[in-house]
Design a protein around this nucleic acid. Sequence first.
DNA 1: ATAAACCTTGAACCAATGTTAAAGGTCAAG
DNA 2: CTTGACCTTTAACATTGGTTCAAGGTTTAT
Lengths: 130, 130
Amino acid sequence: MKIGELAKQTGIATSRIRFYERHGLLPKATRRDNGYRDYGHDMVERLRIIGLSQSLGFSLSEIREILPSAIEEQLSCDRIIDELGKKRENVQLHITKLKKLSHRIDAAIEYFRDVKSAGNKAKTDVLMKL
Amino acid sequence: MKIGELAKQTGIATSRIRFYERHGLLPKATRRDNGYRDYGHDMVERLRIIGLSQSLGFSLSEIREILPSAIEEQLSCDRIIDELGKKRENVQLHITKLKKLSHRIDAAIEYFRDVKSAGNKAKTDVLMKL
DNA sequence: ATAAACCTTGAACCAATGTTAAAGGTCAAG
DNA sequence: CTTGACCTTTAACATTGGTTCAAGGTTTAT
């Protein structure tokens, strides 16, 4: 399979596939006589796993680390489960932060409503408490 | 006030202050005879408002847009309240997405636990549903 | 007078995740 | 044989929010 075909089957641009190869997320492709990259169907799967991992919030460097565990065998489901657990925690933390942020925004809205109805000017010392 | 003093009072690095000036978040500073920037105390407030806005999730280009409304007078509390409302909605959306993500991660964890206990190999067609 | 501590500018660099362009080789069809 | 659709490489660009560096001018303290 040439790179364009792989791109079609995965919906991932050729530039992106080459980028992943350069950055070690894909093995260096075997080449045909003319120098064209040649892929087997396993690369479709690998690219899908990369896409899934990204959608689960993993960065490319994280994926590069974990991918062997995900692909090779189930040598280390444990490793994957562990990483997923950490990622889950991060996401929960992020949610907590955003909830706090949402409350602060609410407070800011209330403050500006007060400022408006009282016809005052906003004061930075009050703002700083938000 | 020279730029170093302003930096001390706000806790914002001089390089950052110059950066903000270049990018239109601060007016072009008036200069002393020697070419040094000279600031009044209002710049301390302005920088604080910028910091607050960032902490509420506004990007610098958003801040550049809104800042006049926030500073000048309460000509437009409405504008600020409006922007805060939009930002709040974005944050809520973001939270919703992260919750879904968290559920997907949970599903992935369960899947890999199954794979492990059954001694199977993970299958991409199942993974794709996560 | 000289060293330390400030100030100036412009340009380059960082992270992450790619895309786009330039310049060229290859291949299948008409 | 030429046209169009592929493929190759390297390098530069984009985004966001700054930091760091080089090379120099100024001010303050000793």
